[in-house]
Design a protein around this nucleic acid. Structure first.
Lengths: 218, 218
DNA sequence: CCTACCGATCGGTAGG
DNA sequence: CCTACCGATCGGTAGG
């Protein structure tokens, strides 16, 4: 199919490894993810897989980066595409809920699990996870500040408090979804977001499509 | 010291093992917790420790139970001792924040981590974790319902939504504390709780003592 | 509660 | 990307 470039097979293999690694890590954890298990899941030899990374830590770092790319594509990009204001706050939450609902990873949100797993394990892997998570919170805070500038969030609200609450809603949605394995758990999360942000009807955002509505806003 | 009863030394040893096991599990995870590591942390032989439980799964179950006892003593009991109403909702959150601040476990809240670690690993250990977590949420929901009966939570609030939000605040506090390792992170969580519940001054609850205040309520 | 051991798997290496 | 291997550690057992 593709024209031969430098090492297309190797890159495809690497991508396939990381795709599997991120999924496996949401079940086994980043420490529990073993090179042998990962190799046999891909019908490869252990050392063949190992050669792509050179150490377990390098595999873990590459896995975190791959999870970051998935999160950007499925959660951050749709939120960035939404119009600034309260709609954007709804959009970032909604994109996260759909990321869960899609069951992209068997163990729920990669980063929610990774922060807790590696929180007491200092080192490069922990630092990379913390950096990504912190940048996501910072982005949500920007969305909140912009919404407040637009007058769609009350002036007496503290942006840090609202950001904290939205992060809490996201984490509670992830935990509830994992606990009950039921897509309806997310309906409650959606109601909480809309009530907290003063959005009256269901489909407040037209940015993150794939659901329906445009009920009472357009 | 103590009069010889049936097997006091064995029970003391078992208690010491579980105390260490819960702490270690918040760092290494319940799967990463190995019998060898646990034994050497206690200066015991591996098989000596193993004899107390008979299988790794039994050790994991006993560890979850021990973590449940700690959570009951440090979070649930203080909340039950608080007066019903909004004070009790503040008390349960405050008890959790102090549980974190006390750094009882190096990896933060045991159950927050355990739910995410074991969420995609069906089995008896997962079931025990889910049962405990669900019972805690159910208890918070009872507190919310009681506060609403007392007229301290608005009639148009949905108890499930408020319970979900309080759980989110707790989870966000845990994550933030782990991310920044800074007790001041919890100040923001405290502000969020009080603003969300319409409590104006800092020390709304006299039940969970050890902090101070009684500013504008008594 | 111990020493001594089992087969399996771990991360990693040699050499191709 | 492979086979074949390394020492260390895993959960678990025998026997005391």
């Amino acid at each position: 199919m593709a024209v031969r470039t430098k090492r297309p097979a190797g890159e495809r293999t690497r991508a396939a490894i990381l795709h599997e690694a991120v999924s496996l890590a949401t079940v086994e954890g980043l420490e529990g993810l073993s090179i042998g298990t990962l190799a046999s899941a891909l019908d490869m030899s252990k050392s063949g897989l190992y050669a792509h990374f050179g150490s377990k830590e390098a595999l873990q770092l590459a896995t975190v980066d791959e999870a970051g790319r998935v999160f950007e594509a499925e959660v951050i990009d749709p939120a960035l595409a939404a119009p600034p204001g309260v709609d954007q706050l709804v959009a970032v939450c909604e994109a996260f809920f759909e990321h869960l609902e899609r069951r992209r990873f068997p163990g729920g949100c990669f980063f929610a699990g990774a922060v807790l797993e590696m929180g007491a394990r200092p080192g490069p892997v922990n630092e990379r996870i913390v950096a990504f998570q912190s940048s996501f919170i910072a982005l949500v805070r920007q969305f909140v500040a912009r919404a407040q500038e637009l007058g769609e969030v009350a002036e007496d609200e503290d942006p840090d408090q609202l950001t904290f609450e939205l992060n809490g809603i996201i984490l509670a949605a992830n935990m509830t979804f994992i606990l009950h394995q039921d897509p309806r758990s997310l309906d409650l999360a959606r109601q909480v977001v809309r009530r907290r942000l003063g959005v009256t009807e269901a489909g407040a955002s037209g940015a993150d499509v794939g659901r329906e509505v445009f009920a009472g806003q357009g």
